[in-house]
Design a protein around this nucleic acid. Structure first.
Length: 876
RNA sequence: GGGGAAGUGGCGAAAUCGGCAGACGCAUGGGACUUAAAAUCCCAAGCCGGCAACGGCGUCCGGGUUCAAGUCCCGGCUUCCCCA
């Protein structure tokens, strides 16, 4: 493998002072020209079959108009450090970047600026690309993708066809969230408290014919396969919660008067004997059978409930409301004719039409909401589960909802709750009035949008009412260029205005046909992009099989926790479908997931709690005041936002301090996973570190490439004295650098490198060339530009990108003597220095001698010796 | 309301297993160099008391386990994130 020679000496910086702008420009150009970060695919000429593969992926951004801020960069810098070290460890590293360009935000931005989304997308991606390169991120730019490029979305449509063919995409008239302001339907996940996530506009429920993806068919597998993933437990928990599996039973209650059956789902079939009434949702079909005597009251209640949001209805703290329907049901736990089995049916809005069957059996003794309801309307409460001893239960007037022992439940009496559940289901099943049932909270995925900026569906609607997919070779169905792409006031899709495009023919039969005018949601393009990166230019198929079997799965996926549910669940779903089709060889797309922490920033409030922009502040004696006044402001920590005036642009930081300093600072702030506040004041420390490194190896007052004593390649004599000391310091630092990759706490790695530089600057002549070179290699993932420059100054002609990562030699990690703290009653009272392998009696004797005044006149009760660590005397 | 993460100096933080709390930086104070400044280098610094040696207190609060607790257990408070 040849990287080509690096720039010759005469082209390098003339001055021996550290000049970040010149250094960073040179090396970024060099990397690009030599394509040093190009990942080799199987079949490529220079592909090395012996090299291990490593696929490290960032969640790709949608390129907004305001560009990157330093908070976005945290994760990208983290993955870049990993990618660079993996290359030095001999891995074939796939580290790509691209643009999630379709979707609502891009379209909203285009509408706001009056420019076509394809134009704004072009300028925005160009700006992002420039910014990412400025930070020195080692992406393989030859693999860049853009989800709004027809060469990309051709395959998004192609994959949609696979779902369609397998019956996983269907049209349905469903009540969906409609946002009047955005003129589109939104998925449940895009609506928060009845308002749109994008723009915070009010939304209402409305029945509309929509495309749905049957993600619920994969619910069980999406749940089960979480177990094998190296993901943060919190994300797994959120996905489990979202899928919301509950196991229980479906039970049939006969409604009196031949009004049919009422089916309920319950997770507690063991409490059937305690069901003293039933509740149906206000939308439930049974309400059509309400007798005339109760009709008016029920109708009034239904109308009132329709005006409430789901939040208002489910809030536990809210006062329960409801009305009796005049109907009765028979509880199948009891014999027909047994008065205890005749229970009233109510309607109440705390029961949701969309969950389970829209009806419940109410067990007020053992369910909080039922208990509250029964108390308010004076309905009977029966104990059927006895609380364990010492726990507040029915006898104490409490509502006991956990596992206990069945009572007042006929054949179940005496059984513990799990066994009682099982037996109840058996009994009901034997009589044909119940069966085990599993339900999920997960709903099918609403997949169509009445918007412009998205992938068109590869579908044709024929005159006879059937819908067919277009042939694979007719893809892509290109998004027609519309100059007026604003949503229509009547809610019809903007694409309906592209008459020429809509009216077409079925190529097979020649019959006239209409294209589908919906577009796919913003999530579609990101549901498979990690696969396209494996083989981005393939025009014949979405990716070559051998590329996927080599690169898959993603080894490390890094992004914000904000995508815990939607993107990661949808992606896993598509990946599983592709697995079933035989297009990928793994069940899961992302083996290891890591969430970088939120980068926050300081903001300032005045006495009234109003925010004061950072430009309106001045600092005096470490305190902050409103500029030109004596009005003090208090510092708070919040997210970076334009409105708070605390957004920091990486361009400015790179210009003033350099990319290496920016990278070091962002990593040095704290562990990658932590949320932490940006403080421009602190950057100086990282910059000083870079300059100290520079001066450790280069004398700014001479014109040698490196300091004279580093320029000669000695025959490696046995290390002695201060050079040996430095060798030990180097290996200790390197060990910390290595271990920082386990938890991505690169702050400790940089601290260790700083300590080494501090030690080396205490011994200016002791540093050897070999130590300097290995230090530069160890520094290079974090500060790659200055490392390359120094590496070249050592006389190397090749970039260090694929140099071997230095190895820790454990022999240098240990000293001949160790210092052991001596405690008396657990408090530090002295220290002793002993030989490494010193025997215990010797250590104890030395320790006693070190703390005489603390032992004098006391009785020694016990001596604790932790080998190599500590001595503690317990005295009385 | 549910789930998750966290709380350590003036600030960002460090501390595999329970074993020297505050590494490494920032800001601060003092000194060296300089005609002067910047830069750089050296020193100090958790808080309280003391000239000092030194002592007491100290990891959100209250209990507990232990020779020993930032770390483990019980109870509480606060902040952030996600969901409803």
């Amino acid at each position: 493998m040849s990287d080509g020679p690096v720039l010759r000496r005469e082209e390098s910086t003339l001055s021996n002072a550290y000049d970040h702008a010149a250094i960073e420009r040179r090396w970024q150009q060099h990397w690009e020209k030599q394509q040093l970060f190009r990942a080799r695919n199987p079949g490529d000429l220079d592909f090395d079959p012996k090299a291990r593969k490593y696929y490290v992926l960032d969640m790709f951004p949608y390129p907004s108009g305001s560009g990157l801020h330093v908070g976005h960069a945290v994760g990208y810098i983290g993955t870049d450090v990993v990618a660079r070290k993996k290359r030095m460890e001999g891995c074939n590293v796939l580290h790509p970047m691209g643009w999630d360009a379709f979707g609502l935000p891009a379209e909203q931005y285009a509408i706001a600026t009056g420019k076509h989304p394809s134009e704004t997308n072009k300028t925005n991606t160009a700006n992002y690309r420039r910014q990412l390169k400025l930070i020195g991120l080692s992406y393989d730019w030859s693999r860049e993708i853009d989800t709004s490029d027809p060469r990309y979305y051709k395959w998004t449509q192609w994959i949609f066809k696979r779902l369609f063919e397998r019956g996983l995409a269907y049209q349905a008239e469903v009540p969906v969230w409609w946002c009047e302001e955005l003129k589109t339907v939104l998925a449940n996940e895009e609506v928060i408290n009845g308002r749109s996530e994008r723009g915070n506009f009010p939304c209402v429920r409305r029945p509309l014919k929509q495309w749905m993806l049957a993600i619920t068919k994969y619910a069980e597998r999406l749940l089960e396969d979480l177990d094998g993933l190296d993901w943060p437990e919190s994300i797994k928990a959120q996905q489990r919660e979202w899928i919301g599996k509950s196991e229980g039973a479906e039970i049939e209650f006969e409604v009196e008067g031949g009004a049919g059956k009422l089916v309920v789902f319950t997770t507690r079939p063991d409490t059937l004997w305690g069901a003293t009434f039933m509740v149906v949702a206000p939308e439930h079909a049974l309400l059509k059978k309400v007798p005339a005597s109760h009709r008016a009251a029920v109708d009034a209640y239904v109308a009132q409930a329709a005006a409430k949001s789901e939040l208002e209805r489910t809030d536990l703290a809210k006062d329960k409301s409801g009305v009796f329907t005049g109907l009765y049901a028979h509880n199948p736990a009891f014999e027909r004719g047994d008065a205890r089995g005749r229970i009233p049916i109510w309607t109440a809005d705390y029961v949701m039409a969309g969950y389970g069957t829209g009806a419940i059996m109410s067990v007020p003794g053992h369910d909080e909401r039922d208990h509250e309801f029964a108390t308010k309307f004076e309905l009977p409460i029966v104990e059927v589960v006895r609380a364990p001893h010492g726990v507040k239960g029915f006898a104490d007037g409490a509502c006991f909802c956990d596992d206990g022992v069945a009572v007042n439940s006929g054949p179940l009496d005496g059984l513990a709750t799990p066994a009682a559940k099982k037996k109840a289901i058996e009994l009901l099943a034997a009589r044909g009035v119940g069966k085990p049932r599993v339900t999920y909270k997960l709903r099918d995925w609403l997949f169509s949008r009445q918007r412009y900026w998205g992938e068109p569906f590869p579908l044709l609607h024929l005159a006879d009412g059937t819908t067919i997919a277009v042939a694979d070779d007719a893809l892509p169905i290109e998004l027609p260029r519309l100059d007026d792409f604003k949503p229509s006031s009547d809610g019809s899709a903007p694409l309906a205005r592209a008459k020429q495009w809509v009216e077409t023919r079925d190529p097979k039969s020649g019959a006239s046909a209409r294209r589908n005018t919906d577009t796919m949601p913003g999530w579609a393009g990101s549901c498979w992009y990690w696969l396209r990166f494996m083989d981005p230019a393939n025009a014949r198929e979405p990716w070559a099989r051998d590329a996927e079997s080599y690169w898959g799965p993603v080894d490390l996926y890094v992004g914000g926790a904000a995508h815990a549910v939607m993107h990661l669940l949808y992606s896993r779903f598509w990946h599983k479908v592709l697995f079933d089709v035989g297009l990928v060889h793994t069940k899961e797309p992302f083996q290891k997931l890591f969430n970088q922490g939120l980068l926050t920033a300081f903001a300032y409030e005045d006495g009234t709690g109003r925010l004061v922009a950072n430009t309106e502040l001045e600092e005096r004696d470490g305190r902050f005041f409103k500029r030109g006044t004596n009005e003090p402001v208090t510092q708070i920590v919040t997210k970076m936002a334009k409105s708070l005036g605390n957004v920091v642009n990486p361009d400015d930081i790179v210009k003033e301090y350099g990319a290496d300093t920016l990278r070091l600072y962002e990593l040095f702030m704290g562990p990658l996973a932590d949320s932490k506040p940006w403080n421009t004041r602190d950057i100086a420390g990282s910059r000083r570190f870079v300059e100290r490194v520079w001066r450790m190896l280069v004398d700014p007052d001479r014109d040698d490439h490196v300091r004279p004593h580093l320029s000669i390649d000695q025959a490696r004599p046995e290390l002695t004295g201060e050079s040996l000391e430095l060798e030990k310091h180097f290996h200790r630092a390197l060990a910390k650098v290595d271990s920082s990759f386990e938890h991505f706490n690169f702050n400790t790695a940089i601290a260790a490198l700083m300590t080494f530089v501090n030690e080396a600057s205490k011994r200016p002549q002791a540093l050897t060339r070999a130590q300097g070179e290995r230090f530069v290699l160890a520094l290079s993932p974090f500060a790659p530009h200055v490392a390359e420059e120094l590496w070249q100054r050592f006389g190397h002609e090749q970039s260090l990108v694929r140099e071997s990562w230095p190895k820790v030699d454990p022999r240098f990690l240990e000293d001949d003597t160790i210092e052991i703290p001596v405690q008396v009653l657990g408090k530090l009272r002295g220290k002793v220095v002993v030989a490494k392998g010193a025997a215990e009696p010797e250590i104890v004797a030395a320790a006693k001698a070190a703390v005489p005044t603390w032992l004098e006149g006391k009785t020694l009760v016990k001596t604790i010796v932790v080998p190599q660590k500590l001595v503690n005397f317990v005295v009385r």
